[in-house]
């Protein structure tokens, strides 16, 4: 079932890992880009991700349809986003604190409702074999691409286009950059922020459904292991740009595959160090792109961290 490809196994594994692992990062990041562009930070997306994973898995198992599971996860994510958006619309409410409490609420609820679904097997989402042209089984396996990954790419392009050229995008940017300017234009900033946060929540929910319904493809309490939080951090790394968020997600996925891949070709000394690769990489890029002269470029003006 396999050909010996020697050291080539490492780049192939990184490619495969980038495609397999990046999707949840991508969806959560895109959701957070949308939310933060409207001037709010939703740190609760980790909880949304985990709850999306649980609800998606549960609905897919009970209904027998993986796509219904994705829909349920998106709905659950919308509800969490809506809740965050509504609470933050109250005067003098800190969005970071609300985000942290919603993160704990989301994971707690997911664990509470999820215990019955650890053992059952739910249907998986389909994947497209894009590696048909190659006769190397490893490459074929690496290029088995899930539909959600492709949807994620389309979404990233769409979001970038929307933010840059459409009226909706302009409204979102105005609200994110200056509440006063938005009000002067006759816009209702709170309403727009609630909508952006709810949509962002839906994206994160879908990211969770990818985790439980495709890769690793099973519901358990350790399913996310902090990916939702990392994805929120990726947004800053990607400078609030959907296209850059896509590359950042790919980079993270690929770097995460480095540890297991190196061990599989016999380079095993210090594997804890390789597992830290994604984080070291982030630090490196942030330092390389930092500047002592200007503030964080691309940051929406109304974000509570930049204000």
């Amino acid at each position: 079932m396999s050909t010996d490809i020697g050291a080539w196994a490492v780049p192939v594994a990184i490619l495969g890992g980038a495609i397999r692992v990046s999707t949840p990062f991508l969806f959560v990041s895109l959701g957070e880009v949308l939310t933060e562009r409207s001037g709010r930070i939703n740190l609760g997306l980790e909880g949304t991700l985990v709850f999306g994973a649980m609800s998606g898995y549960a609905v897919a198992y009970l209904s027998g349809s993986a796509w219904l599971g994705v829909l349920a996860a998106a709905l659950a994510g919308t509800l969490f986003g809506l809740l965050h958006g509504l609470i933050c619309s109250l005067p003098k409410v800190n969005d970071i604190a609300v985000g942290i409490s919603l993160m704990l609420l989301g994971t707690g609820l997911a664990f509470f409702f999820g215990t019955a679904f650890v053992q059952p097997v739910a249907p998986h989402l389909p994947s497209i074999p894009l590696g048909w042209w190659s006769d190397i089984p490893q490459l074929q396996a690496a290029l088995r691409v899930n539909v959600l990954f492709l949807i994620g790419i389309v979404l990233a392009l769409l979001l970038a286009w929307m933010l840059k050229t459409t009226r909706v995008g302009l409204i979102l940017r105005v609200v994110g950059d200056s509440t006063d300017a938005a009000r002067a234009m006759g816009l209702r900033p709170n309403l727009i922020r609630i909508a952006a946060t709810a949509t962002g929540g839906a994206f994160a929910g879908v990211g969770g459904a990818y985790l439980s319904l495709f890769y690793p493809g099973s519901w358990s309490e350790g399913i996310s292991s902090g990916q939702g939080l990392m994805a929120v951090a990726l947004v800053i790394f990607a400078r609030w740009d959907p296209i850059k968020a896509f590359w950042a997600a790919l980079l993270f996925g690929g770097a995460g595959a480095l540890g297991p891949a190196l061990q599989s070709v016999g380079i095993a000394k210090g594997y804890y160090l390789y597992y830290a690769a994604p984080y070291v990489l982030t630090l490196g890029v942030l330092i390389a792109t930092s500047s002592p002269n200007r503030a964080t470029t691309g940051a929406p003006g109304e974000l509570s961290i930049t204000k």
Partner: peptide, 15 residues
């Protein structure tokens, strides 16, 4: 789980 799945894929890739 994610790392376990990656490790399993890496083992399969290694034959």
């Amino acid at each position: 789980p994610v790392k376990e799945a990656e490790a399993t894929n890496a083992l399969c890739d290694a034959g």
